[in-house]
Design a protein around this nucleic acid. Structure first.
Length: 269
DNA sequence: ATACCGACCTGTCAGC
DNA sequence: TGCTGACAGGTCGGTA
């Protein structure tokens, strides 16, 4: 569900509401937990810590914490496909599949809700850098350098978090249609000019999506439950059979790298 | 080293 | 109405 623009929207919303707040108590719920760190370690790290700020790294939400003895720690949340990190009040109705809550000294409450349990919670005592490179501010040269040797289909390479992190299925399709590049093309067959176009399209589409508050396809909402509206500007994702907005050719749906992939057979070469 | 494919979970929706 | 199967924004680990 949540890719870079959605996670960025959530992280910014959280930062605005909980930066400076202190975590009073933590509850970690039911059996097989979506955790990368033991529940006890998460609770002991968070309780009593102050949230310095909340930011996005790749598709991760990172809470930078200062502990009681001033040791820094990071609380890292990955939302998987269906995860939500919400800030509200303890009186809000408890949603099904709520796996984690944190009461804050201000009276607010953080909640992690994730029906499919693909999300993950983790604490680290070091700064979290993410698996790859940030796509939002990479130069065209560095971008080309990352992709021009890979033999994978360009779409699969875009989804590989160890190369660039943050891009998921929607924004891979949306950047490729805007760049006029077919998703199955091997990355190393793209010309320098195509890589430049892809670099520009990707950054533009991410920027616009962030401004739109992300894409709400079925259940994405931000930190206070609001939907985004970039889905209204999708040109490929979810539009199979509908006319291409440029040339009217029906959008095709295929499978690339095991993921549903949408493209215009006429505009994309 | 690289790349495909199933597994991990639950919910929803189309088709029968 | 109700069952079955396919599919969903993501990642990981095993295999070829």
């Amino acid at each position: 569900m949540p890719e870079l623009p959605e996670v960025e929207t959530i992280a910014n919303g959280l930062n605005r509401r909980v930066a400076g707040d202190v975590i009073e108590s933590v509850w970690v719920g039911a059996k097989p937990e979506p955790l990368k760190s033991p529940a006890g370690l998460i609770a002991s790290t968070l309780e009593g810590s102050r949230i310095e700020r909340v930011q996005r790294v790749g598709k991760h939400i990172v809470f930078s914490l200062t502990g009681k003895q001033m040791q820094p720690a990071d609380f890292i949340v990955h939302l998987g496909m269906t995860g939500r990190m919400l800030v509200g009040s303890p009186e809000d109705e408890m949603m099904p599949h709520t796996h984690f809550t944190a009461k804050l000294v201000s009276g607010k409450e953080l909640r992690f809700v994730d029906p499919r349990r693909f999300g993950r919670l983790e604490v680290r005592d070091s700064r979290f850098a993410g698996p790859g490179t940030e796509p939002t501010n990479i130069s065209a040269e560095a971008f080309a350098e990352l992709f021009h040797r890979s033999k994978a289909p360009i779409k699969a390479a875009l989804l590989n978090q160890k190369i660039l992190h943050g891009i998921g299925n929607i924004y891979a399709d949306e950047s490729l249609i805007r760049a006029g590049v077919r998703p199955r093309r091997r990355a190393n067959t793209l010309t320098r000019s195509e890589l430049n176009k892809l670099h520009a399209s990707l950054q533009k589409v991410l920027q616009e999506a962030i401004r739109a508050g992300g894409s709400s396809v079925s259940d994405y909402v931000d930190a206070v439950g609001e939907k985004g509206f970039f889905q209204l500007r999708h040109r490929a994702y979810g539009r199979e059979g509908k006319p291409c907005l440029k040339c009217k050719t029906p959008i095709k749906k295929i499978v690339v790298g095991g993921r549903g992939t949408h493209y215009c057979p006429s505009c994309q070469k």
